[in-house]
Design a protein around this nucleic acid. Structure first.
Lengths: 233, 233
DNA sequence: TTTAAATAGTGTATAAATTACACTAACTAA
DNA sequence: TTAGTTAGTGTAATTTATACACTATTTAAA
């Protein structure tokens, strides 16, 4: 192996945080502002950043997520690492990187993490120049995000689809503590890209010992109120 | 973000190549020799190496696999990145790294790839000091490999188990071109850690349009010969 | 040449899971 | 009172999964 081919890339983590608003899948994006020849340009990106020395990847992902969104104690699950040399070929991305890190950046290898969180969790951020907000996943697919973040989101989506199939319990991470079967079904359908039959779905839920009915109905709807359920254990 | 926390790790790839000998799951390991204070020490590790500048991770994994095993045109699938700062805490590993790369190595982030190959493919290698060989996965679990390679193999195993469930076609990557149903069943059982019923398994295979019976029997067995099948499409 | 040993190969009945399908119930607002 | 909106319920048919035991074929040894 010849030494001159070896180089020192930077390493980062990016977090794809999914939420569900009762109707659509959402993802958290950070707004970034780039000062390009004194023209301000606005853009969106995933919450992510370079890792620290002596910091494990998982730890880094948690730190970065908290720094950029205020979310704490979120279960983040690694899904894929993106290492194309083309990742930093967009001059706008390079400009932004060098401005925010004060480093000369050549190449960045980034590891993607997914999380599924209840959408009512408050997003806070401790930087003046970034804003974390929920966006429709479907809308985001049409936008042009920083770096290869569109691609990263698609892989993240694929990952949670697989994960939910193996561990259906994960669905409840996305629902409010009290939810209707209708909400659960809509979520199930959005994730699995299917259209479930209402009666068959009720039957399926009835067989889930971990979904327990409450003596409570939803409120504030202009029609018959649905029964509320919660996830147990 | 403060600059002094940012550092420059090395990035590598490691390949977990699975095979099947008709009975047990196998994995390719490389033998390495470490000269430790003029004592030679032998050891095993996964085929892996540092990536080159401007080289995509996937490309790198293929290059490294070919360099260390002679295997070409193998479908490698990324499964997880290992980034603990403790990865390079074993002095023996550091010694070996610095001898082979002639670089001062601090930390290495490595991305794991899995492949499934027919075990009759010949292993060649173009280095005098390394030897690639098949080993029983179960035996390897009891050995102490270089770096965190034991852990990497376990994650790789988990990955192919999931993948095979989603894509049963992958099983045929591990079988010879012509195989018996018995071999297919044994492989299925080893991968899924189950014990299938012979009759039910035959039924299952009969429903796989991509497994076609040949007008041919296995040879050289000291009992009734089984019919051969092949994978189609 | 007979017999033992080893593995191949076959069918049926039961249970469980999945699918298809249409109407009544409850509440709100006009 | 009525129209609009969503909640909630059962049954039959099909498909899939499971449990289970004997005969067939070949080789090698007695």
């Amino acid at each position: 192996m010849s030494n001159e081919n070896i180089f020192y890339p930077h390493v980062s983590v990016d977090c794809v945080v999914f939420g569900f608003d009762g109707e659509k899948l959402k993802v958290i994006l950070i707004e970034r502002t780039i000062n390009e020849q004194n023209e301000l340009y606005n853009d969106k990106k995933l919450p992510g950043s370079l890792i620290f020395n002596e910091e494990d990847l998982d730890v880094s992902a948690n730190r970065v997520l908290t720094e950029l969104t205020g979310l704490k104690n979120i279960y983040l699950s690694q899904f894929r690492t993106f290492g194309s040399p083309d990742r930093t070929k967009n001059p706008r991305d390079v400009l932004w990187l060098e401005n925010t890190t004060k480093l000369k950046i050549g190449r960045i290898i980034t590891t993607g993490y997914v999380a599924m969180v209840k959408i009512d969790r408050k997003l806070q951020f401790n930087s003046d120049t970034t804003t974390a907000k929920w966006h429709d996943v479907a809308e985001v697919a049409k936008m042009s995000l920083a770096f290869d973040h569109n691609e990263i989101i698609q892989w993240g989506l694929k990952h949670i689809r697989n994960q939910v199939e193996i561990q259906p319990h994960l669905l409840f991470e996305l629902l409010p503590t009290k939810f209707t079967i209708s909400q659960l079904r809509t979520l199930y359908d959005v994730i699995n890209q299917v259209k479930s039959d209402v009666r068959n779905f009720q039957k399926k839920v009835a067989q889930m010992p971990y979904v327990v009915a409450l003596d409570e109905l939803e409120k504030g709807v202009p029609h018959r109120a649905a029964r509320l359920y919660r996830y147990k254990k």
